[in-house]
């Protein structure tokens, strides 16, 4: 059973056009900036927003299409909303039992199943607590239990960790990963956090302006970004250019030498740590050397990230010692150097 969707939604000037397939047990993350259409896609899959065009189908049954529309209450789905939307007047147990009751399970049985689910997410002792007395992490777990209790075929997670503080987030992310691994249905995770997507998903789809710009396993996306947005997410220097052997003329100006010969339109990526900075032009060794101007300096984890203007512009991560040696200040003129072997070239 595979979920296949052609999501086409037009709303005012925005339009979403996204093809999507999710296999059983697969977790697909939809990653993109705010306003890219992630939530629109999720709402369309949930049936909260009808498609303008296209189709959603799980195996042979059509949920949305030119000839059919299944309303949300009749779709076998579970949704974890960004701020959970737990019903304030119901206890944690009643919240988890709600979906079962709504789908016709008898009260006693629904409560038994709900209790089991609360146990599974580690909230045995909180069955009769009202949502407002739960911590953020606990509320998130109740929301997950509520979504999974009905045994849905499609689990939709809308920024499930966005409302948590950093410490809780780490723990809840790990727990969520465990539950997703156990879950046999289809999962779509919508997030703007690359770490959530990388850790939780089997496959990433990067969405920008309503279009998928890149798709693939997390490791592949992290190594070979295809747009500036993705490169920025995964923290790589990224250029487009035309390769002739080991020389690449960059579209934005400048030239880089690469290790493996290539021909035609290519992407080049290399990490900011591969960039060395010198106050005078270094000599010798076959590397890329070009003049740059310091545009900005900011602390980045244990290093210092330097933004440099030039042809091409580049990000460099340097040690605090280097910052002190070179007495880096915005406006300084320096030389940037990158070894050809540190660059990664792949066709467009």
């Amino acid at each position: 059973m595979t979920l296949t969707a052609e999501l086409r939604v037009t709303r005012g000037t925005f339009d979403l056009d996204l093809g999507l397939t999710i296999g059983p047990g697969e977790v697909v993350a939809l990653l993109g900036p705010n306003g890219a259409g992630k939530s629109t896609a999720l709402r369309a899959l949930a049936g909260l927003l009808p498609l303008t065009n296209g189709r959603i189908a799980l195996a042979e049954s059509t949920w949305d299409g030119s000839d059919a529309f299944v309303p949300p209450e009749e779709r076998p789905i579970g949704v974890v909303f960004q701020d959970y939307l737990l019903f304030a007047h119901l206890s944690a147990l009643e919240n988890v039992a709600f979906g079962l009751r709504a789908r016709g399970t008898r009260k006693a049985e629904a409560r038994t199943i709900a209790r089991e689910w609360l146990g599974r997410v580690g909230l045995d002792g909180h069955a009769h607590v009202k949502p407002r007395s739960l911590s953020g992490g606990q509320a998130q777990r109740v929301a997950l239990a509520r979504a999974l209790a009905t045994g849905p075929s499609l689990l939709l997670l809308d920024e499930p960790l966005a409302a948590l503080d950093a410490a809780t987030r780490l723990q809840v992310r790990a727990e969520l990963g465990r539950h997703l691994a156990d879950y046999a249905g289809h999962t779509l995770l919508v997030t703007h956090d690359p770490l959530d997507a990388m850790v939780l998903a089997d496959r990433l789809i990067i969405l920008e302006n309503g279009r998928a710009v890149q798709e693939g396993p997390p490791a592949e996306v992290a190594r070979r970004p295809r747009t500036d947005y993705v490169a920025q997410l995964v923290g790589l220097n990224f250029y487009r250019g035309t390769a002739t052997g080991t020389t690449v003329e960059l579209d934005g100006g400048g030239r880089l030498t690469i290790a493996e010969p290539a021909w035609g339109a290519v992407h080049i990526a290399f990490p900011p740590t591969a960039v060395s900075l010198y106050s005078a032009q270094p000599s010798g060794s076959p590397r890329n050397v070009w003049p740059v101007t310091v545009a900005g300096i900011e602390p980045h984890a244990h290093t210092t990230r330097v933004r440099l203007d030039g042809a091409p512009a580049v990000l460099a991560d340097v040690t605090t010692a280097t910052v002190a040696d070179l007495r880096l200040r915005p406006g300084d003129r320096l030389w940037a150097a990158v070894k050809a072997t540190e660059t990664h070239t792949y066709p467009v």
């Binding site: 949930a46 909260l48 709504a102």
Partner: peptide, 15 residues
Amino acid sequence: ADPRYEEAAATLGAS
């Protein structure tokens, strides 16, 4: 009242 709670109920199968 936030209508998104009604949407949440719908996704849980409530008419």
